[in-house]
């Protein structure tokens, strides 16, 4: 590694630690939010330097497209008084203490499981790379996520669906009055939204042979939906159609798994001749569902009844 690369890495590491320290200790929650957004940007640079471009892409897409807007929206709901947290940085209350204990337990379990690995074990990467020709794709990350460990990904989509249920159950906000968007925002939406749809499709397609895939594409698509919602508020409600689309990715994934069992194979064990096509079908369905799920997390639920009629 050259001196320039070392300088870049050291600067990045110092900045990340500094940002975490400031965003956890600032009492002004707005500044903490901005620092969190900047932290996401620099974190995706760090993933690039760690040669994990898939993770960098996911962090960039979810960090700048979804969570930034989500946290800013949460800040608005806290109102003018909630924007300053006097109890920061570390005044302990019961909730923080129990949360901390929970995280410490999880950390201890993870540490224990790493330490209990047999000495000299080299991991599964050699086996995974040997099986790559049968996976149907050439990007090892996509092969792991959608072929070798597809059960994991199936359940992750289910977890996201549960999150939407939680939001629909707990969250209900009054409809904000729809202020007109203004010409600049209108133009921005008109230019950016089609680009976002195209880039989401590109990332989905690229996932087979380069960094990309369903989650990254879905995050870009969801960011487009968030942009549209901010310009011209709309509500998803919990219509049958919305529910069907949210469940679509999981249903397609599960149906393919069941079909493989019926055809004499094992659950979600793709035959290598059709693996590429099956992975693309699953990813395309998952992209649509995950995008709507992420959008539903942002848009939330409307307070008045079914929310279809304007008050």
């Amino acid at each position: 590694m050259t001196a320039d690369a070392a300088a870049l890495d050291i600067l990045l590491a110092v900045l990340l630690v500094f940002l975490v320290w400031r965003l956890l200790t600032l009492s002004d929650l707005f500044k903490a939010t901005i620092l969190f957004i900047v932290f996401g940007l620099l974190l995706s640079l760090a993933w690039v330097r760690l040669r994990a471009p898939d993770v960098a892409l996911a962090e960039a897409a979810i960090g700048s497209g979804v969570t930034g807007a989500l946290v800013l929206d949460a800040l608005r709901r806290l109102g003018a008084h909630g924007a300053v947290d006097e109890a920061r940085p570390l005044r302990l209350n019961l909730a923080r203490l129990s949360g901390g204990l929970l995280v410490a337990c999880l950390g201890a379990i993870l540490l224990w499981s790493v330490l209990s690995l047999p000495a000299g074990w080299r991991g599964l990467s050699a086996e995974a790379m040997a099986a790559m020709p049968h996976s149907g794709v050439t990007n090892p990350v996509t092969a792991s996520l959608l072929n070798f460990r597809s059960h994991d990904t199936l359940l992750e989509i289910a977890v996201l669906m549960l999150a939407v249920l939680g939001v629909w159950t707990l969250d209900a906000e009054p409809k904000p009055s729809a202020e007109p968007a203004g010409p600049i925002l209108d133009l921005l939406v008109r230019i950016l939204l089609p680009l976002m749809v195209v880039v989401a499709g590109y990332l989905l397609w690229a996932g087979g042979h380069a960094p990309g895939g369903a989650f990254q594409g879905a995050a870009v698509l969801a960011a487009g939906g968030i942009l549209l919602h901010l310009a011209r508020p709309f509500y998803l409600g919990n219509h049958v159609i919305i529910r069907l689309v949210i469940g679509f990715g999981f249903a397609v994934f599960l149906a393919i798994g069941v079909m493989l069992v019926v055809g004499g194979g094992r659950f979600l064990e793709f035959p290598s001749r059709h693996a590429g096509t099956l992975i693309l079908v699953v990813e395309a369905a998952a992209t649509i569902s995950i995008a709507l799920i992420l959008l539903a997390l942002f848009v939330g639920n409307v307070r008045e009844g079914a929310g279809r009629d304007a008050p």
Binding site: I37, L41, S44, V48, P53, A56, L57, A60, A61, S64, G65, G68, A69, L72, D73, L185, L188, L192, L195, M196, V199, L203, A206, A210, P211, G212, Q216, V220, A223, I226, L227, L230, A231
Partner: peptide, 16 residues
């Protein structure tokens, strides 16, 4: 591609 995604989505936070 990562640069493309960052550039494309950077304005969402500002709009929010």
């Amino acid at each position: 591609d990562v640069a493309l995604v960052v550039a494309l989505l950077a304005s969402v936070v500002s709009v929010a």
